[in-house]
Amino acid sequence: MIRKSTSKKSTAIKICGITKTSQAKSIAQFKINAIGVIGVKNSPRFVAEEECIKIFNEVEKVSSEIEKVFVIANEKLETIKCINNRSNPPSVIQLHGDESVDYCRELKNEFPTIKLWKAFRIKSINDLKIISQYEKDVDAILLDAWDDKSLGGTGKRVPKEFLLNKTFQAPWILAGGISAEIIPEIFSKLRPDGIDASSRLEVSPGIKDLKKVESLVRKIREQN
Rank of each mutant, 00 (worst) to 15 (best):
E67H: 00
S5K: 09
S132Q: 06
L128T: 11
N42Y: 11
F120H: 07
F56H: 07
K20G: 05
S43E: 10
V59F: 09
Y134T: 03
K156Q: 14
E161H: 14
V62N: 00
L151R: 04
G36S: 01
K211M: 01
G176F: 11
F120Y: 03
I55E: 04
V69Q: 03
G152A: 13
Q169A: 13
F187I: 07
I32T: 01
S124Q: 10
G176T: 07
T19K: 15
D193Y: 06
K31G: 09
S91Q: 15
N165L: 11
V217W: 15
E181P: 03
L210I: 10
S204V: 02
K129R: 01
Q223C: 15
G177E: 01
V138L: 06
F120I: 06
S87Y: 07
A197I: 12
S63G: 02
F168E: 02
Q133L: 15
K156N: 15
N224S: 04
E65Q: 12
K166F: 15
K211A: 06
S188D: 14
P89Y: 08
G177R: 00
R105E: 10
I183K: 02
V59P: 04
E185R: 04
A145G: 01
Y134P: 07
I141K: 03
K212I: 08
F46I: 02
N126A: 08
I18A: 09
R157L: 08
E161D: 14
N84E: 11
G153M: 07
S150Q: 14
S10Y: 06
F30R: 03
K81Y: 14
L163M: 10
C52P: 00
D196I: 01
G39W: 14
K25H: 07
A34K: 07
P89E: 10
K20Y: 15
I125H: 00
I55M: 06
L151F: 12
A140V: 10
K123A: 07
K212A: 14
S100Q: 07
K76I: 07
P159C: 13
K212F: 13
P192V: 08
Q29K: 14
L201V: 09
D127G: 08
I55V: 11
E185C: 02
V213I: 13
I2V: 15
Q223R: 13
I183T: 04
N33L: 03
D102V: 13
K14L: 13
W146V: 00
E78W: 03
I66F: 08
I173K: 01
A12T: 11
R157N: 09
S22Q: 09
D137N: 09
N165M: 07
G39I: 06
R3I: 15
N33A: 05
S63E: 02
Q94G: 09
Q169W: 08
I220Q: 05
S64V: 06
A34P: 12
E181H: 11
F162R: 05
K212H: 06
E67A: 04
I27H: 12
D147C: 15
I55N: 08
F70C: 09
Q94K: 08
M1A: 10
K208S: 04
I186Y: 12
V62H: 02
K136R: 12
E185G: 02
S132D: 05
S5H: 01
A119F: 12
N33V: 03
F162L: 08
D137F: 15
W172F: 00
R86Y: 15
E67Y: 02
I27T: 12
L210P: 01
E161Y: 15
Q94V: 11
R121D: 00
G17V: 04
V62S: 01
D102S: 12
A28T: 08
Q94T: 10
